[in-house]
Simulated assay, not measured.
Amino acid sequence: MCAHVVVAEDDEKQAELARRYLEREGHSVVVVRDGRAALDEIRRQPPELLVLDVMMPKVDGWDVCRILRRESELPVLMLTARSAEDDLLLGLDLGADDYMTKPYSPRELVARVRTLLRRVRRDEPGIDPVLRVGGLRIDPERHEVSSDARRVDCTPGEFALLHAMAAQPGRVFTREQLLGHLHGFDRYITSRTVDVHVMNLRKKIEPNPRKPRRLVTVYGVGYKLVEDGDGPGRAR
C-alpha cells in the first residue's frame, strides 16, 4: 500500500525520522518545513496523504487544514505536542482524519498512515473493507458486526470504536485517541464515555464480559482489541 506522502514538519530531526520510516514502508515522501510550503507542494503535486505538524512557521497546521478542506478531501494526520482535549477536538473539527501527540513512536506513525490509506482505498476494486479479528467480523459498508457468526447490534459510537480498533488489532489505544473516533457520533463526550462504550461492547462481543478476552484493558494506558485469548484482560 505505497503512496505519495507529504510530511509538513519544521523540526528537522522529527521530519527526517518520519521520512525514513515512511520510505522504509515503501512510500515516496516529500518533506516541507512550513505551512505555506505545504500548501504549495500539495497544489503542485497532490499527495495521497498529508502528515501535518500543528506548530509551524508562516502558516500553522490549523490554517493549513482549514484551507485544504475548502479545496480537497486529502487525508490529514495531524501531529502536535499539545495533548489537551480541546486541541484534539479542534483538529477534528477542522477536518483532520487522525491526530497524534508528540512524542510518538515512528512505528505507530507508519501504522496510522497505513490505516488511513486503507480507509481511503477501501472502495477500490479487489479490496475487501470487511475487518476480521478472531471471531469478530466488522463490515463498515453495511454497518454490521457479528461475533462468532452471531449478529451484534451496535450504536454508532460503539461501532466507531470497534472499527477503529479492529483496523489495528493488538494496538493499544488511549482514551484520548478513542475519543477522537467518537467525534460526530456522541454529542457530549468525556473519557468516561469511552469506558461506557467499552463496557457495553464487552457485553455484546465477549463470551464472559467480566473476563474479557477480546476487548482488553491495558492498565494505565487504554484498550486494545485482540484475537480471542491473545492477551489477558480484566474488566475495569
Rank of each mutant, 00 (worst) to 15 (best):
A3Q: 01
D10Q: 05
D11L: 04
K13T: 13
Q14E: 13
Q14S: 09
A15E: 03
L17Q: 01
Y21V: 15
L22C: 07
R24P: 12
R24V: 14
G26P: 05
G26M: 08
S28C: 09
V30L: 07
V32C: 06
R33F: 14
G35S: 03
R36Q: 14
R36I: 11
A37C: 08
D40I: 03
E41C: 07
I42E: 00
R43A: 15
R43I: 07
Q45P: 11
E48F: 01
E48C: 00
E48M: 05
E48W: 02
L49Y: 06
V51L: 05
M55N: 15
M56S: 05
P57L: 13
P57A: 09
K58M: 00
V59D: 06
D60Y: 03
V64D: 04
C65G: 02
R66H: 14
L68Q: 03
P75C: 04
V76F: 05
T80Y: 02
A81I: 11
R82K: 09
E85I: 12
E85T: 09
D87F: 15
L88S: 07
L90E: 13
G91T: 07
L94W: 03
D97G: 07
Y99S: 07
M100S: 12
T101L: 12
P106S: 10
R107A: 12
R107V: 15
E108A: 11
V110I: 05
R112L: 01
V113C: 09
V113W: 01
V113A: 04
R114E: 15
L116C: 04
R118S: 14
V120C: 14
R121D: 12
R122D: 02
D123Q: 12
V133A: 02
R137G: 04
R137H: 10
R137A: 15
I138L: 08
I138K: 07
P140N: 07
R142T: 10
R142Y: 03
E144L: 08
V145S: 02
S147R: 06
A149I: 05
G157M: 00
A164M: 08
A167F: 03
G170W: 00
T174L: 10
R175H: 06
E176A: 10
Q177K: 11
L178I: 09
L179C: 09
L179M: 15
H181D: 05
H181M: 04
G184Q: 04
G184A: 01
D186W: 12
Y188P: 03
Y188D: 15
I189D: 00
R192Q: 13
D195R: 06
H197S: 00
V198Q: 05
N200F: 02
L201V: 02
K204A: 04
K204Q: 09
V216R: 02
V218R: 10
V218I: 13
G220P: 07
G222F: 00
Y223S: 07
K224F: 12
K224V: 14
D228L: 10
G229S: 12
D230G: 14
R234S: 13
A235P: 03
